[in-house]
Amino acid sequence: MAGGEMMNDVTLLAAVVQDAPVPLWVIDEKGLLSLANDSAARFLGHRRGADLQGGPSHDLLHRHRPDGSPYPSHECPIISLGSAKASAEWFVTLAGDVREVCWTTKPVGTSGHVLLTFAQPHRRHHETMNSHRPLVRQMSTAGSHTRLHRELSQVIDERFVDPSFSTASLADAAHLSVRSVQVIFAARGRSPAAEIRRRRLDHARYLLERGMTVQMACHESGFLDASTFARAYRQHFGFPPSRTLRVNELPSPPLSG
């Protein structure tokens, strides 16, 4: 192919990318933005993609978490280059608004560059993404601590029976830092770990009161071993789980007549 023809092909390709209705974003091996079309720029509240070139991709997309806390670039899944990925997340616009997105990345040749495409999710696609990522929750910067606490509590209600569920899992579910989650719960005088444990213990008592064995109630409530469960139960309620079971196994008194 002659040099002039190759240049024409490159120019044509650049024009196609620039005019594409889908946001297109290319990140180089250093995490810097090497190309953004105008659709991508407008999505984030900027005028032209050319104005963003050379800037740090991570900071341009989500310079902080939805609650305003820092989002270190080394925790960003997008700039962990090297493989194709897809996820649901949020980006921060130039004005500071949070926009929910679905994004995909794909390595470009062997240059170390990555092509990022993103868009606001359609309702059906959003539900599909969440069915595969049950911990994902989007938090709005406009939401108060009360709203955030309510949404975090809902995540706990859905996940507490999973023995691996922890404060770190909860933070990851909400795309918040562990410290932010701790602050939200501290405002109500409780730690997130204590809230998860309380929810497990309340559920265990519910199961025991309905005749489930101590061992089964332990595992059905998210505890890994019976000794830890019994110790936590006694500390929380003031008596062992076996007492709850015995009380509910007592026969009913005879009716007087």
Rank of each mutant, 00 (worst) to 15 (best):
G55D: 02
A142K: 10
S164Q: 13
L12P: 01
F91P: 01
I196K: 01
K106L: 15
G82T: 08
E151Y: 08
L255I: 12
P107R: 03
V10G: 01
V178T: 14
P134M: 06
G82V: 08
T244F: 00
Q235F: 13
D172C: 09
A41C: 07
G189I: 03
W90F: 15
F185R: 05
L135D: 08
T213I: 01
H175Q: 13
I79F: 01
G4V: 13
S87D: 15
L250F: 07
A186M: 09
H122M: 12
V16S: 06
M1T: 12
S131E: 11
Q138V: 14
A14R: 15
R231M: 09
P72K: 10
A173W: 05
P254R: 12
G45Q: 06
D38Q: 01
Q53C: 11
G82Q: 03
P251G: 05
D38L: 02
V10H: 12
L61C: 02
N130V: 12
A187H: 14
L176N: 03
E29W: 10
C218E: 04
L245N: 03
A20I: 01
G143W: 15
T141V: 07
A142H: 10
D51C: 06
G257T: 14
A14H: 14
H125D: 15
Y206H: 14
S87P: 03
A2G: 15
M1L: 13
H236M: 10
H132I: 12
K85P: 05
L33T: 04
E249R: 11
I27H: 05
S39M: 02
Q18G: 07
A119L: 12
S73T: 08
D172S: 13
A168L: 11
S252N: 12
G238C: 06
R48M: 07
L12N: 11
H175M: 11
V214M: 06
R231L: 09
I184A: 04
T244G: 05
E127W: 12
R42E: 11
P251M: 10
L250N: 04
T93F: 01
P192K: 06
C102T: 14
P72Y: 08
F43G: 00
R48G: 04
A217H: 02
G68L: 09
F185W: 08
A95T: 13
E195R: 11
F160W: 00
G109L: 10
L170T: 00
R190W: 04
S164H: 10
A173I: 03
A204D: 08
S144P: 04
S69T: 15
D172W: 03
Q18K: 11
I156F: 04
R47Q: 14
D67P: 09
A14G: 14
A174Q: 06
H58R: 03
S180E: 05
G238T: 09
R231N: 09
